[in-house]
Design a protein around this nucleic acid. Structure first.
Lengths: 117, 117
DNA sequence: AAATAATACATAATTTTCTTATGTATATAT
DNA sequence: ATATATACATAAGAAAATTATGTATTATTT
């Protein structure tokens, strides 16, 4: 008998972008690695953002003008700080509305008795 | 100026399987089209499962022995009913635990003040 | 009566969005 | 010294959708 990972591929597929936008909205300027650590902390280790997902997404958001960057040196080590642009803040509000609707929908499905009519 | 759809690609990417498992757990035997309608109803039109996502996933779940099927005729029209196998019920419990953890994680991020410590 | 929408399945091509693997480099802890 | 943590980046591959297309029956609208 083979043992294989029972770990489901991530449920948060599709939610990473709004998660990052929310972080930036709440905490202002942040650098990539910091985001991964903060999400891990906030979710008590549940959500672990991989670098392969994080950095390309941040680059895409920058291209789209949703975020802007400033690179700083911390000792000899680089940190690339991201913050929301004006357009990014607008987009974040939209994304948050969508997230709330989505979470409510999940509630309706997973807790049909508890969910509010 | 071009107008384009602002509609974000679906957030539930990755959640469809647990959603279907939950439906089958709650409602027993269901056919595919019925699942799409029930999800649309329950979520007040928010979640619209596309057929291109639904049917291949149902087929995969059948291959994996998570669900079993019975085909019935409703008049001249076919309905393929799906229900959870014993293994499927086990798997559903695991998936529901994962879903709750995931939803709690989203709460921590989207509502940091409200979320329970 | 004819056209459209709804019901009900299915699959292929494509796109989106991850995971996994790999690479570079500095700082800290064992 | 070695391993772990910090900090970025990118490429190959996999997973999981969207979009488009197809077949066919039934109900509704015009």
């Amino acid at each position: 008998m083979y043992f294989y990972s029972m770990k489901k591929s991530s449920l948060y597929k599709g939610c990473l972008e709004p998660i990052l936008l929310r972080l930036l909205k709440d905490h202002g300027r942040m650098y990539g690695y910091q985001m991964t650590q903060m999400v891990k902390d906030i979710t008590k280790g549940e959500l672990n953002i991989t670098e392969g997902a994080l950095y390309p997404l941040l680059h895409k958001l920058e291209e789209q003008g949703i975020v802007e960057t400033e690179t700083e040196m911390n000792g000899n080590r680089m940190r690339k700080y991201y913050s929301l642009t004006k357009a990014g803040k607008k987009q974040t509000n939209i994304a948050m509305d969508e997230m709330k609707a989505f979470m409510q929908s999940l509630e309706y499905i997973v807790n049909p008795k508890i969910a509010l009519g």
